[in-house]
Amino acid sequence: MTNWFPLALGMDVPPGTAAPARLCGKEIALWRGADGQIHAWEDRCPHRGMRLSFGFVRNGNLACLYHGWQFGADATCRHIPAHPELRVPGTIHAHAYQAAERAGIIWVSLNEQASADELPNMDAFGARSILIRAPLASVRTALALPDEGWGWQEECLVAVHEPEPGLTMLHMAAATLARRLDVADRAKMTRDRLEALNEKVSA
């Protein structure tokens, strides 16, 4: 059983922005403050359940789009605009997961005890996150990837995750900046090949 899942390329969540991700249907908000630190939270505001990935990043906090509740990097609620004088109780907080950035990819673990030692330890540069309309298991088999869902192949990091059953996101990172275009082309060819194969199997 793997602890860490590759959910996005680091470059797809620039500083000061939030982005949605899903892992087997579980909705996760990825966001990054101006300090560059990446965060992964349950994509649900504890106030009214709004998706936090629709929110905006201000002064190192993620603010919910609905009523503007602001959550700090430690996931606790820092400010409620409708009650500006209120000292917000520490019990109000978003649900945070472990997040790490390695080899140009954002990795998230739902297990609090997961060790970052399991993650790739080489440098790489994100080239492409690409949707493949085929189930994760068949993509993993076709790409000869281990259970962890990632591996180094021909100077490139190949990683996969399942946003929802039947769909797979393939993330590819190149060993050098100069090779990113080649790797992105490979990602497209891989997608086209695997989707054609999947259609053949379904037919």
């Binding site: 390329l9 797809d12 949605p20 991700a21 899903r22 949707l131 946003p163 996101m169």
Partner: peptide, 14 residues
Amino acid sequence: VPLDLYPAIRNFIR
């Protein structure tokens, strides 16, 4: 269509 599947389109919108 869920936008988590299309990072470049998200970037374009922003």
